[in-house]
Every structure is written in C-alpha cells, then in structure tokens.
C-alpha cells in the first residue's frame, strides 16, 4: 500500500504539470482582455499600456514558465518565510492578481474562512443528514419515509441553488425578516449574540447547500444499503440470531459505507472550489465568488492559480479515496 501511494504521488507530478499547462493554454487562447471591463472612456493607447504593465507583452511560454516559477518556488518560499521568519523569498515576484495587483495567495487565504465555514459546514451537515436518511430509506424500502426521502432528494438534486436560494431570501429575509439577505464577511464572533448572528447569517446558505449535498449522498447510501441487505451474509447474520440493530448498523452499514466514503471523499475538493452560485446569491464572498469575478475580469493569474489548486485537490482526494477504499475493504489490494 505504501509503495502504491508513493508511486501514485510521483505519477501525480507530471499529471499536474500537464494540467497546469492545459489550463494556462486554455485561458490564454480564450478570447478576452483584462481591460475589457474598463469604461470605454479609457483610450486604447492607455489600455495597451495597462496590458503591458500586466506582462501581456511577453510570449506565452515565458509567461507560463514565469507563473510556474512564481507558484512553485516563490509562493512556497514565502509561506516558509512567514512561518519561520526567514528571508528566502525576498525580492521574488509572487503570483500577482491583475485585478487587485496584490498577491493571489493572500486573497485566497482571506477568502478561505468564509468558504470553509459555509460550504464546508453544509457538506458536513448534508452528510450527517444523508446517512440516516439513506439507511432508513433502504431498510424500510417503499415505506412512506422512503417515498418522502425520494421526493425531497429529487427536489434537492434537481432544483438549482439559484432558485432555492432566492426563494429562501424572498420568504425568510424579505417577508419574514428572520435572516439577513447579505452575508457580513467582516463579522467577528466574540460574544453569544455575535455567535447567534453568525448562525443566522449562515442558516440560509448552509441550508441550500446541505439540501443539495444530502440529496446526492442519501441516494448513494440507500442504493448501497439495498445492495448489501440482499446479500447472503445478512441472511446468515439473522439466522445466527443477531438483533436487527447489529445486523443493520454493524454488518450492513460497514459494508455499505465503502462506496459512500469514496463518494464523500471525492466531493471534498468541491468544498474548496466554493459554491459559485450559492456564494453569489447570498453574498458570501468566498472562493467561488473569487473565481467567478476573476473569470469575468479576465484575471488570468487568479483563475490559473485557483483552478490549479482545485486540480491538485482533486488529484489528491482521488488518491485518498483509493487508499481509503483499500483500507475499508480488505479484499482490495493494489500491490
């Protein structure tokens, strides 16, 4: 297993380099111009100067290699410097966003808490809701609980978040006035009241995303449980006189969790990707909103860095899922 992991990690390096090149070329070849969003009153000569000051005058390969150097050398060194107070990265150019003219990594770090709180929490809550629903739905297949569960997850899965989000805002923020419609990213939780406010402002976005996540995972859980409930070993366990609790929660659940854990692990990178639409609807200015505004503004260094980080996370969590699979299921061995 260890050699397998190491081999996969080594293989990931050329894969990621290739991905970064593809992203860079895609962004570069796509039509668009970082000065396109400026007012038309700014004359073309000035626009040309702005483009030059952004480094767009250089050929593609130079810009790609420069980005690689900035991302792989300057940024890690900078992190090292801030942790240990050293000065290795002094004078090294970091990845600079075209919109803000400030280091991309700083902005990402600033955005991370919102995204982790809202999107991460909704993933956790969604999973926690989904597992029991999936288990009960499968155990009592075709019962009213199963039917309602199917209906709710169908709604959660098929109704887009920009609809549920706005609907919630209109009902709970505009008409009832229970929750704020705009997320305050500057809010600091330092007292009980502040905590209550934080819960209130997170309630709606977390609900919308949790519904979506729960819908997906509960279906997986149910399907996997159903597969296992029909297995011979379940009959054997029952025949041996074990209680239903032990049969379902110990034998069946453990075996059913194998594919579900993989699905959950593969979903983790999407947390970091933020929820572009939900963040936009609730004004939770996290990573998703950062990515979408950067795309609109043709802020290539920002888009490139964010998408590459997502690529790294996806490759990493794929590996984690595979390793977890092997650990949960002794029948699977990679070596």
């Amino acid at each position: 297993m260890f050699t397998y992991t190491v081999r996969r990690l080594l293989l990931a390096i050329p894969t990621l380099l290739f991905i970064s090149l593809i992203i860079f070329l895609l962004l570069d070849l796509a039509p668009g111009d970082p000065t396109a969003q400026l007012p038309l009153t700014i004359p073309p000569e000035v626009r040309e100067k702005i483009r030059e000051s952004l480094g767009l005058g250089q050929p593609v390969y130079v810009r790609y290699l420069l980005w690689l150097k900035q991302f792989l050398v300057a940024e890690p060194l900078h992190v090292f410097d801030t942790m240990f107070g050293t000065g290795f990265a002094d004078g090294m150019q970091r990845v600079i966003s075209w919109q803000t003219r400030s280091p991309v990594a700083d902005i990402i770090a600033q955005r991370m808490p919102q995204t982790l709180w809202v999107v991460g929490l909704s993933y956790v809550i969604g999973t926690l809701i989904a597992l029991p629903i999936g288990i009960i739905s499968a155990y009592r297949q075709y019962s009213w609980f199963d039917q309602i569960g199917a209906l709710v997850s169908m709604i959660g899965y098929s109704v887009p978040t920009f609809f549920t989000g706005v609907l919630l805002i209109v009902v709970f923020a505009v008409n009832l006035g229970w929750f704020p419609s705009i997320y305050d990213t500057t809010h600091v939780v330092d007292s009980w009241d502040a905590f209550v406010f934080q819960v209130r402002q997170m309630a709606m976005p977390v609900f919308v995303l949790a519904l979506y996540n729960a819908a997906q995972i509960s279906r997986f859980m149910r399907a996997s449980m159903l597969d296992n409930l029909a297995q011979d070993y379940v009959r054997t366990a029952r025949a041996k006189g074990m209680s239903e609790k032990v049969v379902v929660l110990l034998h069946v659940l453990r075996n059913s969790m194998i594919p579900v854990v993989t699905v959950i692990a593969l979903g983790v990178p999407t947390i970091f990707g933020g929820a572009i639409i939900t963040e936009q609807v609730f004004k939770v200015n996290g990573l998703g909103q950062l990515l979408i505004t950067a795309i609109y503004a043709n802020d290539i260094p920002m888009v490139q860095t964010l998408t590459f980080i997502f690529a790294v996370l996806i490759v990493l969590f794929n590996l984690i899922a595979d390793v977890l699979y092997g650990m949960l299921d002794p029948r699977i061995r990679y070596d």
Partner: peptide, 12 residues
C-alpha cells in the same frame, strides 16, 4: 459576450 465584444482583441 461583453468581454469579447468590448475586449478589443485584434485576433477576435
């Protein structure tokens, strides 16, 4: 798309 239309990219 506005970013292309107003983008002024001579290649587009």
């Amino acid at each position: 798309d506005a970013s292309v239309f107003f983008g002024g990219d001579p290649g587009s």
